[in-house]
Amino acid sequence: LTVEVTLDGRRIELHGLSEEAHEILRHALERNADDKEIKKILEELRK
């Protein structure tokens, strides 16, 4: 799955996400998580 997010003013596409990762990010974006929170989530998903 692919998600497009804006971090530090740049639009980035995240490819190859699992369903779980996609859901976690989608929920964070829906509640307008800040860049710091999104980065933390991405860091966790990379593990």
Score class of each variant (00 low, 15 high):
E30T: 06
D35Y: 10
L29Y: 03
A28V: 05
V3E: 03
L42I: 15
H27F: 01
L42P: 00
T2I: 09
L14M: 06
K47M: 14
L7T: 05
E13F: 05
E4D: 06
I38R: 01
K40Q: 12
E44I: 12
H27E: 15
V5N: 03
A33E: 05
D34M: 07
S18M: 04
E19P: 12
H22Q: 10
R10M: 15
L25Q: 00
V3D: 03
L1T: 08
T6H: 13
L25K: 00
T6L: 13
I12F: 05
E19C: 11
K47R: 13
K39A: 11
V5H: 02
I38K: 01
T6S: 10
E30H: 06
I24E: 10
D35V: 11
L25C: 03
E4P: 00
L29R: 02
A28E: 03
L1R: 13
L45S: 03
H15I: 09
S18W: 06
R26Y: 04
E13H: 10
R11C: 12
L17R: 00
I41F: 04
K36V: 14
L14T: 04
R46C: 15
L17N: 01
A28L: 09
E13I: 15
H15N: 09
T2Q: 06
R26K: 11
I12Q: 05
L14I: 15
L14K: 01
L45W: 08
V5W: 00
K39E: 09
T6V: 15
T6P: 03
E4H: 06
L7C: 14
G9W: 00
K39C: 07
L14A: 04
R26P: 00
L29E: 04
E23R: 12
I12H: 05
A28D: 01
I24L: 14
D8Q: 06
D8I: 01
E44G: 11
A21I: 09
K39D: 06
R11P: 08
K40L: 13
D34N: 11
R46F: 15
D34I: 06
T6Y: 03
A21N: 06
S18H: 04
G9D: 06
E30C: 08
K47E: 13
N32P: 04
T2Y: 07
L25W: 00
K40C: 07
D34R: 06
A33L: 08
K40A: 13
L17P: 00
K40P: 01
E4S: 05
E19M: 12
R31K: 10
E4T: 14
D8F: 00
E43G: 10
L17D: 01
N32A: 13
K36I: 13
T6R: 08
E43K: 09
E13S: 10
R46V: 14
I38E: 00
T6Q: 11
L17K: 00
A33C: 07
L25T: 00
V5F: 02
L42D: 00
K47I: 15
A33G: 04
V3F: 14
L25D: 02
E20C: 06
E4F: 03
R46M: 15
E23K: 11
V3R: 03
L17C: 09
I41N: 00
E43W: 02
A21D: 13
E37K: 04
E44N: 13
V3S: 05
R31Q: 11
R11Q: 11
L25P: 02
E37A: 08
T2A: 07
D35W: 09
K39Y: 12
E20N: 09
D8Y: 00
L25M: 04
N32G: 14
L29M: 12
T2C: 14
E44M: 14
L1F: 13
E37G: 03
R10A: 14
D35S: 13
R10P: 03
T2K: 11
R10I: 15
E20K: 11
D35H: 08
E23P: 02
I41P: 00
V5A: 02
L14W: 01
A21R: 02
E44V: 08
R10H: 15
H27A: 15
L1D: 05
R26F: 05
S18K: 04
V5D: 03
H15W: 07
E19H: 11
I41T: 02
L7M: 08
R10F: 14
E37S: 07
I12V: 13
R10Q: 15
L1V: 11
L42M: 08
A21T: 06
L1N: 08
I12T: 06
D35R: 04
A33M: 07
E30Q: 11
H15V: 12
E23H: 12
R31L: 11
E4Q: 02
R26W: 02
H22Y: 15
L45P: 00
E4M: 05
E13M: 09
I38S: 00
H27V: 14
I12W: 03
I12M: 08
K40V: 10
K36S: 14
G9Y: 00
E19Y: 12
R26A: 09
E43D: 12
E4Y: 02
L45G: 03
K36A: 14
R31F: 07
E23T: 08
E43A: 12
G9N: 04
H15T: 12
G16R: 04
D8H: 04
L25H: 01
A28W: 06
D35I: 09
H22N: 11
N32R: 10
L1H: 11
N32K: 12
T6C: 15
H15Q: 09
I24A: 11
D34L: 08
I24Q: 11
I24P: 00
S18C: 05
K36P: 06
R31V: 10
L7G: 03
E37Y: 07
T6M: 13
L42W: 05
S18R: 03
H15P: 05
I38A: 01
I24N: 09
E43T: 08
E13R: 08
L14G: 02
E43Y: 02
I41G: 00
E19D: 12
K39P: 01
A33Y: 08
E19V: 13
L1P: 06
H27Y: 01
R10S: 11
I38D: 00
R11F: 09
H27N: 15
E44L: 10
E44D: 13
R11W: 08
T6A: 06
G9T: 03
E13V: 15
K47Q: 13
L42N: 00
K39L: 14
I24G: 05
E37Q: 07
G9K: 03
G16F: 09
L29N: 04
E37T: 09
R10V: 15
K39V: 10
L14C: 05
R10L: 15
L17G: 01
K47D: 10
G16T: 05
L42F: 05
V5K: 01
E43R: 10
R10W: 06
K47A: 13
H22W: 15
A28K: 00
A28Y: 05
L1S: 08
L17T: 01
K36C: 10
V3Y: 04
E30A: 12
